[in-house]
Design a protein around this nucleic acid. Structure first.
Length: 579
RNA sequence: GCGCCCGUAGCUCAACCGGAUAGAGCAACGGCCUUCUAAGCCGUAGGUUACAGGUUCGAGUCCUGUCGGGCGCGCCA
């Protein structure tokens, strides 16, 4: 609808330019918005106010000239000038209901577009460190990222979904060492488990399995080991334990490492798949070292003169590119930092032929953006091709108290626990409902015990109700015809017009949500559509009416069902036929 | 101290990137089931959009400052 308005008003402005009323004004885009009040028509444009100054006349002078110049057409019933210079557009009654036929034809594809056609996007999200199960904080990124990928796909982009597995670095050593220590306990050693090793029960389970498969081959005397270590400061003690683990397990250290890593990555993958979130690729950080890509990335920057050796430490001069200070890429001991592998990773992404790379990061990583962009720019890439979307943390509340979480302490509510309690659909809808950069309070008691209050059920209920009407129709042997001939004459209730307008707005809603990376807009749209339907349901009878009216109303609610289903599918939740 | 995000009804959040009278849900109050699912509908009440300036036809939205909250400011990942 807006497209045809766009065409009509562009033509009007062109007419005004050629007739000399407007002088050499180039208008790129005219904005139309759906009106809130009925007396303002169906759409309104502010174009007269926008152009008034440049046209050298007041909006109220210009507006009538614009409306007079709009070409003859059968879409617009009436144009009115109102307020400070708005042009209110009243759409022809019959045209309003054309959308029902379009929905019938396009069915599952209604709402999709090709605006992103030919462009490939790499979308990286979740990417939680494989050091424990996903918790509810990760769930938000998972739901947000997955819905975003669906939206981008719906508007024509080719989306490649990727999970970056941080399987290198000290955290992995801590994980392997934690497994080994639990293994020692499993084979009979008695000692207090270090507070800064990973505490979770899943480590104990892994250690138990290792004991079954390899016996006590890697047992050491914990008393003599810990006597010396206990005197050290915590983090140094942990390093000493890592060394001890490597020494005790010798060539099989890798086995402890692998069992820890694989168990956790598999667990994360299963968890996400259960949540309806899948990835095209699980990209290993270690592979960047294996391919020498990290070294090559640092070398390349050095060759360009952006790496400086200061007392044996290599610094990337990121401050040359807007970062607040320079960053270490290779430590004095020769080990590359996390930034070094991340630079290599992003260069790898950029060179795989994507038009854009989108990262969904936790908001705590925001300070990291300038240095990664600096590295891309220094390497000769366009940093604007990297889009970082930040997701604020979800604060958890239980019994009115904020729950503090940390991975190492093992005290967190897992995503799996949340899914078991409230169900995938409710969890996904709940997460996606909030704008990503908005801080979010996740009340566990509310989500778990009062799931009926979740707006998801309201939307799903609308869908189920429509299905029920059609079920009733067939049970009662009612013959109906959903063809749209003469439809508009039979639908004249306010709510019917509002529904038609809402249904017609769906494609644009998807476009806006995708363009702005704001899936939450879709949840609000669906709620509003459901509200209109429920109102319709309560005010009008669909089956026990005269057959022609029945056909028209059934065609209307069938279109509603289609759009509700399309929208819910994009969010990744079910559209149930019964509730 | 510096940087990023945020501040909207009692609570949780919207507001179509500057538009007309700031909207929903929950909580509160009052109505609606012998007829298609009451997980629903209708109505009432609830606001100086943290505060103070500025930009313009017009500001919750943009700019400056103040206050308040979250996060970041490692040779951790």
């Amino acid at each position: 609808m807006k497209d045809s308005l766009q065409a009509l008003f562009s033509a009007a402005l062109k007419n005004l330019v050629s007739s000399g009323v407007l002088d050499g004004i180039q208008v790129i885009e005219i904005s139309f918005e759906q009106t809130k009040a009925k007396e303002h028509g169906d759409f309104a444009t502010n174009i007269a106010m926008v152009l008034a100054k440049r046209a050298g006349m007041s909006p109220s002078e210009l507006a009538p000239k614009i409306t007079a110049a709009v070409p003859e057409n059968d879409q617009i019933a009436k144009l009115e000038i109102a307020g400070p210079g708005f042009i209110n557009i009243f759409i022809d009654h019959g045209v309003k209901f054309d959308v029902i036929e379009r929905i019938q034809q396009e069915a599952n594809a209604y709402g999709c577009s090709q605006s992103g056609e030919g462009q490939k996007i790499l979308l990286e999200y979740v990417s939680a460190n494989p050091t424990g199960p996903l918790h509810v904080g990760h769930g938000r990124g998972a739901a947000y990222g997955d819905t975003l990928s669906q939206l981008l796909t719906a508007v024509g982009y080719e989306v490649h979904k990727e999970y970056y597995v941080n399987d290198a670095g000290r955290q992995m050593d801590i994980l392997a060492t934690s497994v080994w220590l639990r293994y020692l306990q499993a084979v009979g050693e008695q000692f207090r488990f270090p507070a800064n090793a990973y505490q979770g029960d899943y480590i104990v389970a892994m250690a138990g399995q290792l004991k079954e498969s390899i016996g006590d081959k890697y047992r050491v005397d914990s008393q003599s080991l810990l006597n010396s270590i206990n005197k050290m400061e915590d983090e140094i003690a942990l390093d000493a334990l890592i060394s001890a683990a490597k020494e005790a397990t010798a060539d099989d250290y890798k086995a402890f490492f692998e069992v820890g890593l694989n168990t956790l990555v598999d667990d994360i993958r299963n968890d996400l798949e259960g949540f309806g979130v899948s990835f095209d690729e699980w990209f290993s950080e270690r592979s960047l070292f294996a391919d020498n890509a990290v070294q090559e990335a640092v070398d390349a920057l050095a060759k360009l003169g952006y790496v400086e050796d200061r007392d044996g430490t290599l610094w990337f001069k990121s401050s040359d590119f807007g970062d607040e200070k320079d960053r270490v890429v290779v430590r004095e001991n020769g080990m590359p930092t996390y930034l070094a592998s991340d630079i290599a990773y992003h260069l790898n992404k950029f060179r795989r032929g994507f038009s854009h790379c989108i990262n969904i990061w936790g908001a705590d990583h925001h300070g990291y953006i300038p240095r990664v962009k600096a590295a891309l720019q220094a390497s000769g890439e366009d940093p604007d091709r990297l889009i970082v979307l930040l997701v604020q943390f979800a604060s958890l509340y239980r019994g009115g108290e904020k729950v503090s979480m940390s991975t190492r302490s093992g005290q967190f509510v897992t995503l799996r626990e949340l899914r078991d309690e409230v169900g995938n659909d409710a969890a996904r809808f709940f997460y996606v409902q909030r704008k990503s950069e908005q801080h979010m309070d996740f009340d566990l008691d509310l989500a778990k015990s009062q799931t009926n209050e979740n707006p998801l059920y309201y939307v799903q209920y609308a869908h189920a109700r429509i299905c029920s009407v059609f079920r009733q129709a067939s049970e009662r042997g009612i013959v109906y015809d959903l063809s749209v001939v003469g439809l508009a004459k039979l639908l004249h209730e306010d709510v019917e017009q509002q529904l038609a307008a809402k249904l017609a707005a769906f494609p644009e809603q998807i476009q806006v949500a995708a363009d702005n990376y704001e899936p939450h807009q879709l949840t609000y749209f669906l709620r509003e559509l459901a509200t209109l339907f429920h109102r319709y349901y309560n005010s009008s009878n669909f089956l026990d009416v005269e057959p022609s009216v029945r056909n028209a109303r059934l065609a209307m609610i069938a279109a509603c069902r289609q759009v509700l289903s399309n929208g819910l599918t994009l969010i990744g939740v079910q559209a149930p036929e019964k509730m």
